[in-house]
Amino acid sequence: MALLETRGLTMRFGGNVAVSDVDLAVEGGAATGLIGPNGAGKTTTFNMICGVLTPSGGTVTLGGRDISSLSTHRRARLGIGRTFQRLEVFSSMSVRDNIVVGAEIRESWARTTPAGPQLLAGGADLDRDDEVSLILERLGLMDVAESRVGELPTGQARLVELGRALAIRPKVLLLDEPASGLDDAETASLASLIAELTAAGLAVLLVEHDVPLVMSVCSMIYVLDFGRIIASGTPDQVQQNQTVLDAYLGSGSR
């Protein structure tokens, strides 16, 4: 059984079905990709997994436990961290404080719900300042640590969200387009960071339009179109799939 699973996840807004019957399995220690054209329902799926949206149907299980009825903060405490496609940074605070808030909030609940190990330090239990500094350093944010996040370019602000999510030491990390706004070098270092995190045991679910990035870091890929899974498999299998190409480029003229 996979660490995070969804079964028959469905979301209706009024009469429109945004996500329909989605089954995902996200394994620990690996990155899983979720790709698909605009409006396919990827972000809606994320929102249902972390509890921001209540699904119209289906279940979410984490480590075999049904978490479908838990509130967002309870799911976070059980180990689901995420970033947002449309930025949700604490824009009036400094970069460092954004990460610090994450760590402090974790400390406030870790007494009752034990958090996971610090992945970047190979499981060591660092004190808060060291942990924050380590995260800043690994994300290349040291130079801008004291800047207000609201003044950063999008790409760096996304990294701040990633760092903030890491500060709660999640077991599953949902990344919603983390590479958009990053340049090639930054994308490459993001890829190696994801690889390092998964090697340390984290489960990553990655929504990303930069398909080469998804192909390079993910061991399993799901393709979503019109709210349904139209294909899944290893990167190679997905790349050879004609349905996937049609979903991306349209089935019009050829």
Binding site: C50, G51, V52, S71, T72, H73, A76, R77, I80, G81, R82, F84, E88, V89, F90, S91, S92, M93, D97, N98, V100, V101, G102, E104, I105, R106, S108, W109, T113, E161, R164, A165, A167, I168
Partner: peptide
């Protein structure tokens, strides 16, 4: 710490919830 949490909640309640904060 409490003050930072309040400011964070003002900036983005949803992000706070996904960090495990009980709003």
């Amino acid at each position: 710490s409490f003050g930072r949490r309040l400011t964070a909640m003002k900036d983005s309640p949803v992000a706070c919830a996904t960090l495990g904060l009980d709003l």
